[in-house]
Write a protein that binds this DNA or RNA. Structure first.
Length: 432
RNA sequence: UCCAAAGUAGCUCAAUGGUAGAGCAUCCGGCUGUUAACCGGAAUGUUGUAGGUUCGAGUCCUACCUUUGGAGCCA
């Protein structure tokens, strides 16, 4: 009678018992008549001890010559052992080789990023990559939990869109039965329609940007969550962004401690993400930058080196609000107290991670909106449906967009965004 | 799009303008406590592509391709 199947993550509950594990050979080390196999099953890695005298010559020799990532099923006794990182190891009584593998390209030694990304379909098997993808999963879970638990309704926006949402970014054009269609660069305008229908909604889906940005903070395809709330003004949007980030960070830390430790993340920095986040106007941020020796032209948006210098001064995310209207999207509401400033807010993550959230209050007055569409030289006909939202019972409203991968990059404390998605799409990478 | 750097064995990298090298991976052998094991042996090359300079080019020059980092733009 075969021993019951379990997983490596659940091994501690089976100490002293005979169990079956199914997995892949992560690494092995022969020592004559004893063989150590590091078995990976997706839930963890455990050392399996094989003894020649107990397994017999034929099986022992077969296991000894098994290449990295060969799949196998092992049956053995779970034993506590202080020499194992896991605290347990499996003393193998028998094994079955499912599919032997030879020449697995990703070895335990170092590799360059181009090679690893060419083998992304295999690279995701490695400990570090698996840990990052677990953090991503927890981040998505936290985001859904937060909005679902705060009265928001999921409101899906289309991915094929007839025109630019903002008119600024470059879009991916596709052939839609003979006419052009564009991959969505934001679900926000549709989210606004949802907010006037359902009160509080969130759009959560993939977003596409054809900008030729080849930096460690950019993907051409990424996931964005965009809450949108009727009756909300800028202060309420900032309160929401703050509460949301505290909750999501807390969820990742609470449930992802093991993964974060695998990534050698300094968890104390994430535990520091508590209210209140420092809030400052763009003009005040410019003053601070000037004081610390990084002056900026206040009518121009500051760049990413300035952003980094600013965030270095704080131990938690900061919120910069009221940017110059001229550099912001047409739909952003002008500050009635100072029309050259817009009621927008960026949330900048600490440790140099920078902008993870952009949002604010939307222009709710149709006459101003008509003027802004004209000023931005956008095709009025494309926005007729959007203008209808102002024609039929417009109210103050707003929201923000969080870049999922940027949030995950920060949670993991890793240098590059491309490792936070299973198959990254960047300016020069479309495969695998 | 702009600026900078780099392309040599399956991988990571060496090689003063003068015979193409090492470690790892692979294959063979040895070892009863390894953790990126160790020891011995074997095999591994159109030096990104196309031109050019030179007696001679991996090395110098030009163009192109690819990759990496950064800027702008953004989440």
């Amino acid at each position: 009678m075969p021993a019951p199947v379990t997983t490596i993550a659940a091994l501690s509950a089976h100490e002293g018992q005979l169990v079956t594990l199914r997995g892949w050979l992560y690494n092995s080390a022969g020592k004559g008549k004893i063989l150590f196999i590091q078995l990976r099953d997706g839930s963890g890695i455990v050392q399996c001890v094989c003894n020649k005298a107990e397994l017999g010559d034929e099986l022992f020799e077969a296991l000894k010559h098994l290449g990295q990532e060969s799949s196998l099923i092992v049956e053995g006794t779970v034993r506590a052992d202080t020499r194992s990182k896991l605290g347990f190891e499996l003393h193998v009584s028998t094994a079955r080789i499912v599919t032997p593998a030879t020449g697995y390209p990703i070895t335990p030694k170092e590799h360059g990023p181009a090679f690893l990304h060419d083998h992304r379909h295999l690279w995701v098997r490695s400990r570090r990559q698996a840990a990052i993808l677990r953090v991503r999963h927890l981040a998505v879970q936290a985001i859904r939990n937060y909005f679902d638990g705060h009265g928001f309704t999921l409101f899906d926006a289309p991915i094929f869109t007839p025109n630019a949402c903002e008119g600024t970014s470059t879009l991916f054009e596709t052939d839609y039965f003979g006419r052009p269609a564009y991959l969505s660069q934001s679900g926000q305008l549709y989210g606004e329609a949802g907010a006037f229908a359902l009160g509080k909604v969130y759009v959560f889906g993939p977003t596409f940007r054809a900008e030729k940005s080849g930096t460690r903070r950019h993907l051409t395809e990424f996931w964005m969550v965009e809450p949108e709330i009727a009756w909300a003004e800028l202060e309420e949007i900032m309160d929401l962004a703050e509460d949301f980030l505290v909750e999501c960070t807390g969820h990742v830390v609470e449930h992802g401690r093991g993964a974060l430790q695998e990534l050698e993340r300094d968890i104390s920095i994430l535990e520091n993400v508590r209210k209140p986040f420092p809030r400052m106007s763009y003009d005040d941020a410019c003053k601070i930058l000037a004081e610390i020796g990084h002056p900026v032209d206040p009518e121009d948006d500051f760049g990413s080196p300035h952003e980094t210098e600013l965030t270095k001064r704080y131990d938690r995310p900061i919120m910069v609000h009221r940017y110059p209207t001229a550099v912001k999207a047409f739909y952003m509401k002008e500050d009635p107290a100072n029309p050259v400033r817009a009621l927008g807010v960026d949330v900048l993550a600490p440790e140099g991670y920078g902008e993870i959230i952009g949002g604010g209050e939307r222009e709710d007055r149709i006459d101003v909106l008509l003027r802004k569409i004209d000023e931005h030289k956008l095709p009025m006909s494309s926005f007729e449906w959007y203008l209808d939202l102002r024609r039929y019972g417009s109210v103050p409203h707003g929201g923000f967009g969080l870049g999922l991968e940027r949030f995950v990059t920060w949670m993991c404390g890793i240098p590059h965004i491309r490792e936070t998605v299973p198959f990254p799409r960047t300016i020069d990478r479309l495969t695998p």
